[in-house]
Design a binder for these strands. Sequence first.
DNA 1: CAAAAGCGTTGATATTTATCAACGCTTTTT
DNA 2: AAAAAGCGTTGATAAATATCAACGCTTTTG
Lengths: 193, 193
Amino acid sequence: MHENLLAYIKQHATSPLTSDEEALIVTAFQPKKLRKKQYFLEEGNVCKYVGFIVKGAMRQYSVDDKGVEHIVQLYIENYWASDRESAVMLTPSKYYIDAWEATELLIATVADMLDLIERVPSFGQMTRLMDQRSFIVSQRRLNSTISNTAEKRYEEFADNHPQFIQRFPQHLIASFLGITKETLSRIRKQAIK
Amino acid sequence: MHENLLAYIKQHATSPLTSDEEALIVTAFQPKKLRKKQYFLEEGNVCKYVGFIVKGAMRQYSVDDKGVEHIVQLYIENYWASDRESAVMLTPSKYYIDAWEATELLIATVADMLDLIERVPSFGQMTRLMDQRSFIVSQRRLNSTISNTAEKRYEEFADNHPQFIQRFPQHLIASFLGITKETLSRIRKQAIK
DNA sequence: CAAAAGCGTTGATATTTATCAACGCTTTTT
DNA sequence: AAAAAGCGTTGATAAATATCAACGCTTTTG
């Protein structure tokens, strides 16, 4: 169960893990299964866990006054699911996170994460990289959103994240891109020509 | 000159700095002055420096095929200016960063930053917080962009960042929000009523 | 197996936002 | 002091995108 996580950490750190360190990590991360549509986090709650996705697919979204969902993140295998804002600031989350497919996670509390960062240098390195990469991805997406038309945004997304296109239905992709499902449908129709 | 930086670090770390540590930091950060409009980074170059703004205001933006600028970041005192994507991945930057006002910076090379992170625990803590906070801010902005109309986005921005509204002209704010200056002008006109 | 829910599509129309051009005012440059 | 550049605004119009409603097809659920 923990192999994927350990492999992921090794991949994102410069030095190998000692067996003591591996033990610390394995202890901190508990397996958790989510059925389809089951919540990992609900709006209003403080995000207490961080989940590493071993198998499955999840989404993070806000719901506006009109009840419309806005997808802020999509997650698949080897992604970290959590609301960092809530977890770091200890504030009630503005988001829901739920399982799109049946999902297997390894979850740790935020406190355990902090502990591991202190005690396992490779783990600290990995989370630092993760933070930086998250920011970079987010910045790119922001730049794309403020600079490009819906069509270009979709093209870019499809080019850079073919896995997501295959894995999630079109209306979620549309929401992720900040457009309606109808508009995305028309954009795709255009693009075929 | 370095007082602001040292104060900033202390503020974002749990333990105080030893005088040895302070010396390391002071050595790593060189003062640098930029005149209005002077570049800190140009598109196509790898971002080699990170700058802490002691006094002044800067902006980071991309330029599209039509020559239109799209503001991705605005910076004022106590902000860190750099293209993290380029600095971390060592890839040519897609952005320009320049001084909007005459600006005084403390700059360090990316290599020196990494060195400080290793050698000064408080510095490592500070950069970790900085990374997390950057991501959170970016995520919030993204959510606002995909969920809200231009009008709400402006309201939110004006509420949360009054300093920026006062400091930068309207057409930069518009670009930052991903709308044209004309649209922002009309939104503001509406809002007055 | 029947019913319901989910998904993508299309058409008609409304709304939002961009584009282009022009103007007055202020600030900066020469 | 004159000229130029920067800034915000307005009007007219065009383009992008949203909204609402309906439909067929597939998948899921009872």
